[in-house]
Design a protein around this nucleic acid. Structure first.
Length: 316
DNA sequence: GGTAGACCTGGACGC
DNA sequence: GCGTCCAGGTCTACC
């Protein structure tokens, strides 16, 4: 029989709202079961992969129940708790959420403020690289193939590849089997940096480290430019910068009624959100998310293979 | 500091 | 079914 864990949540926590809050919830190995409103995914643990199902059967703030497909050792249980907590932002600073709702009360009623992320920073960084210079369906495919080709196999699924595994993979394998194209070398280099400890997560997360320093460091990494750095910063819980891309231009044109060249609109979008200060990214993102939900319905109803793979500028 | 072109994949389109 | 074009962010070379 597999291990079962109970994980306490903050008083305002709603699983369906807080999982279905960022596009990564539809990327492998994540799978949101719309009918049951549960999150399925495999985790890479010390003794191999383990798939789990996460559900919240009670009201807002009730505990999460997590069922694994196998028995976990004590150290694995601790690691699983830590990874799930990171992924679901259970550790999001409550004062920061309150401050966000004070500066942008549009999201107070729904309680939106947490953005779904990955169990590890490595997965967040690689997912960011797979989202660059491609349409969303290609990002979905790349992540699916990365898991199938390099992820630890467990019951019915695969975990996301570990940095160690990817660092030992030939770029040609990534390109050929996972269809990541020219990103192959950059992804292997990133994996090696993680394995060598050259990417110091504790420094990146340290409140004493300035946002400018984090940004300056991130853009030195292979495959990471201004867009990716901005995105990784929000994944680190630093919301003071935007991740500007073609979606930002679409948003500027269609929702904010901005005009000019794409470069001019990007600058205008950046300036438009300055008023939200260190919560800028969340204000920007939830505006985008609201737009997607108007088009496709509430995000917790998005079927991975249908609606969720379709939200790009060209489709909307 | 700003910009043009290459990088790669997959989808759309025309034939 | 095949060929061509295009979108997408980063990187390098060049001005």
């Amino acid at each position: 029989m597999g291990t079962r864990l109970t994980i306490q949540t903050p008083a305002d926590y709603v699983l369906s709202r807080d999982v279905c809050s960022y596009g990564y919830f539809v990327l492998a190995p994540n799978y949101w079961d719309v009918a049951a409103q549960r999150l399925h995914r495999a985790l890479a643990l010390d003794e191999g992969g383990a798939s789990c199902v996460i559900e919240q059967t009670g009201d807002k703030g009730s505990a999460l129940r997590v069922r694994f497909d196998r028995a976990l050792s004590r150290p694995e249980q601790a690691k699983a708790r830590s990874q799930i907590s990171r992924m679901l932002r259970l550790d999001e600073d409550h004062q920061s959420l309150k401050a966000f709702h004070r500066i942008d009360p549009r999201w107070r009623r729904s309680g939106r403020g947490r953005l779904f992320r990955s169990p590890t920073l490595f997965e967040d960084v690689i997912k960011t690289v797979t989202s660059c210079n491609v349409a969303w369906p290609s990002t979905v495919n790349m992540n699916k193939r990365l898991c199938q080709s390099l992820g630890e196999k467990c019951e019915g699924s695969h975990a996301f590849p570990t940095a160690k595994k990817m660092s030992r993979t030939r770029p040609g394998t990534l390109r050929g089997r996972c269809r990541v194209g020219y990103r192959d070398v950059r992804m292997v280099e990133l994996a090696k940096l993680f394995v060598r400890g050259d990417i110091d997560e504790s420094w990146l997360c340290d409140p004493l480290t300035g946002d400018d320093d984090v940004f300056t460091f991130l853009v030195t990494l292979p495959g990471i430019g201004p867009y990716s750095a901005g995105n990784i910063m929000q994944l680190l819980g630093r919301y003071s910068r935007l991740a500007l891309d073609t979606e930002s231009v679409r948003h500027g044109k269609t929702i904010l009624a901005m005009s000019g060249t794409d470069a001019q609109i990007m600058k205008k979008v950046g300036a438009h959100f300055d008023k939200f200060g260190e919560h800028k990214f969340r204000s920007y993102w939830f505006e985008l998310w609201r737009f997607y939900e108007k088009k496709a319905g509430p995000s917790h109803t998005w079927e991975r293979e249908e609606t969720a793979t379709a939200f790009t500028a060209s489709n909307f």
